[in-house]
């Protein structure tokens, strides 16, 4: 049992948790941030992807204590209140989700993809970069379209910010 502190979606949080507590359980059970999901137990499906210190990680394969002191962002904190992040918007506009269960992880991975590779993403790149996110509903067709569109919109935002 240890007191773990970390920033989650811009807010300082803490909880007394067992050392074996996974980051995903810290978020879901301790902080009621249930947008981060668990779809497998072999670190494959990506439903649990969050950003730790700006990088996409599988929160089912990180202990909460390992993330102590980190800056964690989840799907709930991706955009401001009542606003949508361009990637969230793109998923809606392109029907990039059906049951919605893999969606938070997909969106967090997609944003990370653009952060790393920039806003111009080919279909082949998007498909390759989605290796760690499994969707059973969409056949990925509209997810790929969504990410391309979301990346473009993020690019515009970046350009605007630069100006």
């Amino acid at each position: 049992m240890a007191k773990v502190e970390m920033t989650v979606n811009g807010r300082m949080t803490s909880a007394n948790v067992e050392d074996r507590t996974l980051l995903v359980d810290y978020l879901r059970e301790e902080k009621n941030l249930t947008g981060t999901h668990v779809g497998c137990d072999t670190s494959q499906c990506g439903a649990c992807v969050v950003h730790v210190d700006g990088k996409a990680v599988k929160s089912c394969t990180v202990l909460a204590v390992q993330a102590a002191g980190s800056d964690v962002r989840t799907i709930e904190g991706l955009a401001g209140d009542d606003q949508l992040h361009p990637m969230q918007e793109a998923f809606r506009n392109n029907h990039g989700l059906q049951c919605g269960f893999c969606t938070p992880g997909m969106i967090m991975s997609a944003v990370d993809m653009v952060n790393r590779l920039g806003p111009k993403l080919s279909e082949a790149t998007i498909r390759a970069e989605l290796e760690g996110n499994i969707c059973r509903c969409t056949g990925y067709h509209n997810i790929v379209k969504s990410i391309a569109a979301g990346a473009k919109a993020m690019g515009k935002g970046m350009k605007k910010a630069a100006e």
Binding site: T34, I75, A79, L84, Q88, G100
Partner: peptide, 9 residues
């Protein structure tokens, strides 16, 4: 979609 893309499902 709104609730699913914002983690409110």
């Amino acid at each position: 979609d709104k609730r699913f893309i914002t983690g409110q499902g």
